[in-house]
């Protein structure tokens, strides 16, 4: 029991310091523009997302998402 608790604690601690690697696919007209405008307004958000600009979310192929996870993404954010 005690052993498990310690493990759980350790796990939690690891999670706290965990910085996920997230890939973003942003639509040029919408989400990418919103992200630019967030910059202009100096809003702050976590620095975990790397962005690939596409002209529209319709461009996103199933293969892209699968490949992103294969390349070690902990999450994929598609923004239209």
């Amino acid at each position: 029991m005690a052993q498990e608790n310690v493990l759980e604690k350790e796990n939690e601690m690891a999670q706290e310091g965990f910085e996920p690697r997230i890939l973003g696919f942003f639509c040029h007209w919408c989400c990418y523009a919103a992200a630019d405008s967030a910059g202009v307004s100096r809003y702050q958000y976590p620095p975990n997302v790397r962005v690939i600009r596409v002209m529209c979310t319709g461009r996103i192929d199933t293969r892209f998402i699968l490949e992103a996870f294969r390349c070690g993404a902990d999450g994929v954010f598609t923004g239209g």
Binding site: C30, A34, A35, S41, Y43, V76, F77, T78, G79
Partner: peptide, 13 residues
């Protein structure tokens, strides 16, 4: 782990 969201150019917040 995959999400699809919508934010227009005007919706920075």
């Amino acid at each position: 782990r995959l999400t699809l969201e919508w934010a227009s150019a005007a919706e920075a917040p």
